[in-house]
Nucleic acid binder design. Sequence first.
DNA 1: TCCGTATATTACCCATGGGTAATAAATAGT
DNA 2: ACTATTTATTACCCATGGGTAATATACGGA
Lengths: 268, 268
Amino acid sequence: MGNIRTIPSQCGTVSDMDARSPSPPSPWLPFASRRRARDEKREAVLRMAVALFLEQGYHRATLNEVARRLNITKPALYNYFRGKDEILFECWAIGNELVDDCIAETSSGGGSGLDKLRKLLLLYAELMTEDYGKSLVRFDIRDLSEDNRKIVRTAKRRIDRAFRDYIAQGIADGTIKPCDPKLAAFAIAGSLNWIGHWFQPDGAMTGKAVAEEFAIRLTEGIATTSKRKKADKPPGTSKPSREDRGEHHARTAPRAAGQSKRTRHRLR
Amino acid sequence: MGNIRTIPSQCGTVSDMDARSPSPPSPWLPFASRRRARDEKREAVLRMAVALFLEQGYHRATLNEVARRLNITKPALYNYFRGKDEILFECWAIGNELVDDCIAETSSGGGSGLDKLRKLLLLYAELMTEDYGKSLVRFDIRDLSEDNRKIVRTAKRRIDRAFRDYIAQGIADGTIKPCDPKLAAFAIAGSLNWIGHWFQPDGAMTGKAVAEEFAIRLTEGIATTSKRKKADKPPGTSKPSREDRGEHHARTAPRAAGQSKRTRHRLR
DNA sequence: TCCGTATATTACCCATGGGTAATAAATAGT
DNA sequence: ACTATTTATTACCCATGGGTAATATACGGA
């Protein structure tokens, strides 16, 4: 019946949406040999859902379409999730765990406040170029249940605090110029979050390249010592190498196992 | 029947929505003496709509609710607009005209590239603290008709170009350090656009204060000469004066008259 | 005072899409 | 093989909300 078509798009500084990741594969063969690990399929639903939600927007995306792209039908999804909003929440939750990984990795490594801030910037920025990272800033908290909304708000505060703490720490140890940590964090996080709105993997720069550029640029203004890798000349306007980009740091793979903490509702 | 309640909220660095402007007044008296200028009422619909769209999100907000808050009924709205998506577009269009004003004001005033960039930053940032400004970055382009979508994309490119041009100009005249104008514009605009996501008028800072802070901070990193108004001490973490905030620069009032150019469809 | 126009209202249509009930197919265990 | 369990399917329900048709009310002008 309803034949939905994908929508064109384009980047832009002010806003503009739409991220067409090449649409993840499905573990469901077209109505034939089934029975693979439950978690694997649950995972596949989320990967497909997050891609579709980003591509079309949560409200325009239908569960029918999510299911169709997985070679199954809508009611099958209810074996793994309570409803659409729970799928949205789980997508967000995965992104949130990835951010936690970033923070943990940053905190464990030593260095000055500025060093840590730069490290977090780098990891966070790169995350913003991936689907689950984008879900953190593109999804609307108001689409969630009241309970999940509370969880999200708490998590956001945690992330915010990480940025502010590093800045405050940098001011204390003299690597960052005196400034208001709150506002500085807002300014920096704003830039980073916006990456999730304009970055498209098929652009001129890789996610890693964008992340590295932003990590330097956003700390130039508040660092007490300037630090440019390649002299002061205009940094090559693009790093089109695109090299490997394989396994930049624990991601996707390790996720499959050990769904870990949080309110992971096991159904039935 | 359906009794909709407003939703709680809170700011946050990562995302978080919801802007509760005190809900604009309605020119429709509760089903009594009517007949005021048509444009005035059209304007009122847009003001109420933009506030509701920001408060609840476009898809959750209903035309019934827009109408109810205006003391009218849904079909009455169709005297002024073709449909919901056109209302959304018109909200965006007003915001866009305000940005154009910012650019025009900046371009007309002289100064170095850095001066112009700072000026535009200041005006743009302040705009992001207001409803129509927020609509530029919070509304989803995919909710528009194909025609209007094209218009929006073109306009966004124009704005983007303004930022890049000033940066390039600054590099040329030596007031801005050599850098990639495209990425620098993305970083700056990202910070500014994000204001539209977290700023709430009832917070600790006024829109003007936020704008001034960001205008300085975001140019510190790329300026060839540092420029801090109040020495280098931590700038008062808040400017709680809240003074007048009256008529910061042509806005709202002048808008009422002369709907001006663009595809303003006169109905019937 | 009566009419025409603009602008409301009430009452409805209906497409969309989230969600559910009943049932069928596949697999694992014994 | 037979059965229990999981995991699909088909067929349906129904609340929501954008949009429309028919009609009523108010106002300006002659």
